[in-house]
Design a binder for these strands. Structure first.
Length: 217
DNA sequence: ACCGGCAGGTGGACC
DNA sequence: TGGTCCACCTGCCGG
């Protein structure tokens, strides 16, 4: 078994920054526009196997020029140098933009609100995974966390999984993450966080920080 | 200069 | 029905 104390040391080191980020997420949902929310969504489509910072800079540029909201696939493609699998991802973004629009206008906030009020966050995540190409459980969780609904969900990426194994929460890192297996591991991480008395959303930040040395997104 | 390692995975085919 | 495998694809950075 590994040193549990390390977790709390890191938590003390980063918690002010984490609180700040979480407040930003809440404010994004409270005060953000449909374009703001969709930008966060598109960011989460881009991040798999890519560098988060490169992705976020690309989003900022496409947001400023409005390409993200009105451009076609070619327009977006040109802005995504450095993003892995960008051809595919551009397609996913444009498809999702239709999904999140009503009468030709972005309505992602209204649509998500309805889902969350009617079904709750966990079920909303299922809906996103089922309906949107390019969103698996990992990225759907990432997105929901980044718009302020991450209190009880885990973002099981390679860093988190590595830490979970290191601390004996799971025996092995699975080769592939099916929905069923995702829930299983998420449940174990939830239990672990309860045992530590640290919220799941905090534990994610701590593990992410241990893996990368950053508190970015 | 070359090269392995890494970057917040996902869809779809196949069994 | 549910797991496993592989294509997708690029650029940067340290040895």
């Amino acid at each position: 078994m590994v040193n549990i104390q390390k977790i709390f040391e890191i938590w003390n080191e980063i918690k002010e920054r984490v609180y700040f980020r979480l407040r930003e997420f809440e404010n994004l949902w409270k005060y953000g526009s449909n374009e703001d929310i969709f930008s966060e969504f598109a960011f989460c489509i881009l991040t798999p196997q890519s560098k988060a910072k490169v992705c976020w800079n690309a989003i900022l540029e496409m947001k400023k020029t409005k390409k993200l909201f009105y451009g076609n696939e070619d327009d977006l493609y040109g802005s995504l140098k450095g993003v892995r699998f960008r051809k595919r991802k551009v397609h996913y973004i444009v498809k999702a933009r239709e999904y999140f629009s009503e009468n030709g206008e972005l309505a992602i906030k209204e649509i998500l609100s309805k889902f969350i009020e009617s079904y709750g966050v966990l079920k909303t995540r299922d809906i996103l995974v089922k309906d949107i190409k390019g969103m698996g459980y990992k990225e759907a969780s990432h997105f929901l966390r980044n718009i302020g609904f991450g209190q009880d969900i885990a973002i099981l990426d390679r860093h988190i999984l590595r830490s979970l194994k290191k601390y004996g929460v799971i025996d092995d890192i699975p080769k592939s993450l099916t929905g069923r297996r995702y829930f299983e591991i998420e449940g174990k991480m939830r239990e672990f966080s309860k045992r530590l008395g640290l919220g799941l959303v905090y534990l994610d930040f701590i593990f992410w920080y241990m893996g990368t040395g950053e508190v970015f997104k």
